[in-house]
């Protein structure tokens, strides 16, 4: 890899930041649990992108290792999350997160 073909780190970080913000906005704005789960996936991928970019910048393998870790995490999260979605739908008959807001002071 030569310097010319490498993307500058800043561009990758800006993209990762935009993705993270989009995911966060999705969590805040969406009420459907499925969409919330998808937004979380986006945020995780944003973080993973930042790791890969940083790894490439410093020529270290850690970033790619962490990406694989995050990928695994995302898969397990998706399976647990989907199970929760199923339970929520069975219990409340809806996928609206606000309907499940029972824990309050």
């Amino acid at each position: 890899m030569t310097e010319a073909t490498t993307l500058p780190l800043e561009h990758a970080l800006i993209l990762s930041g935009i993705l993270f913000a989009l995911g966060l906005l999705g969590i805040l704005a969406r009420r459907n649990v499925l969409f919330v789960l998808m937004s979380i996936e986006i945020m995780m991928n944003a973080a993973a992108l930042a790791f890969v970019a940083a790894g490439s910048r410093w020529h270290a393998a850690d970033g790619q290792i962490l990406f694989i870790l995050i990928l695994t995490l995302a898969a397990s999260e998706a399976s647990v999350g989907l199970a929760l979605v199923l339970q929520i739908y069975r219990r409340f008959g809806t996928l609206d997160t606000d309907a499940a807001g029972e824990l309050k002071g």
């Binding site: 805040l28 704005a29 029972e102």
Partner: peptide, 17 residues
């Protein structure tokens, strides 16, 4: 602080952010 604990997930997420 009692009022802030309202059980709304999205509110919590926003506060954390």
């Amino acid at each position: 602080s009692v009022r802030s604990e309202n059980g709304r997930l999205r509110w919590y997420a926003a506060s954390m952010a």
